[in-house]
Design a protein around this nucleic acid. Sequence first.
DNA 1: CCAATTCCCATTGACGCCCATGAAGTCCCA
DNA 2: TGGGACTTCATGGGCGTCAATGGGAATTGG
Lengths: 159, 159
Amino acid sequence: MDRFLSNAVNRIDAKGRVSVPAHFRAVLQKRGYQELYALGALDVPAVDMGGLDLLDRYEARIGAEDPFLQAADDMSFFCHGDGAFVKVDTEGRMTVPDFIREHTGITTEVAFVGRGQFFQVWEPGRFASHRHEVRARLLKLRQELSAQTRALDPSGGVA
Amino acid sequence: MDRFLSNAVNRIDAKGRVSVPAHFRAVLQKRGYQELYALGALDVPAVDMGGLDLLDRYEARIGAEDPFLQAADDMSFFCHGDGAFVKVDTEGRMTVPDFIREHTGITTEVAFVGRGQFFQVWEPGRFASHRHEVRARLLKLRQELSAQTRALDPSGGVA
DNA sequence: CCAATTCCCATTGACGCCCATGAAGTCCCA
DNA sequence: TGGGACTTCATGGGCGTCAATGGGAATTGG
């Protein structure tokens, strides 16, 4: 297994630590990352987390912009100033920093959600809501499309 | 880690000193700089700080300009005349000079903001405001772009 | 000689490292 | 196929180390 998949909810202990799911840790180790890069998502109360490759991808994107325009400055301010490194201890736990709690609303439990090349952390309740929203949007999209084409439904369907 | 990342707010003591975040100090040491070069940002109430390489980059930028144009003269006047060196003591603290206080509005607390190749100092309140502005601009930019490309979304995904 | 700055030491609070415990899952064997 | 032993993992807590901060002493410059 080489990508972040499925989801799990873990509890934050009295010292503010939470176990990163063993499966995610295995992916990180396989890719050679001991430290996590974390960045609050733009439009949802979630924080994206992943290896340094996540930051590299943002920096590559910045490199494509004219460095004297505001867009490049904004992007750097966002991914460097708003991002952070998060350490994972020898037991596979990370301490949840304040900016993650503020951005996500996390207090006592953390929902880890695999996203392929990275994963997200959510407040469990908000994650459940968002999941339903996404499902509803996809269902609607599929119904709209199937009136014209079967593109989203190669065999039995997405849902 | 070899770049300035994440942000932290530290307090100025009675003598006007403030601790440079340990992570930033580690980056400076790795690059071999004991002294900081500081220059007030043009369009925001922040001061850019970094090693001598920061000044080098500014000078390289000046060198790219036609020396007969006023722009080159202005740039040189600005980054040499308005820039300053800031010392870091044995404890990793710097004294906040007056021009930084005036340009940023800093009084009792300093927000250190990583920017990759350099970092910035802000008054914490203004930093928070600017952060929200940047996020709003990027969100808008992303929505405009997503009609054509998913470049800002590392997943390239639906959500 | 005074004032500002720098160096040194002390405190405290946060964080990383270690060990322990209990629950859940897996594998093997009868 | 069912049960038991082993492994893995999430979680809790003690302890040492380091960083941020405060204050005093020494040094330097005007």
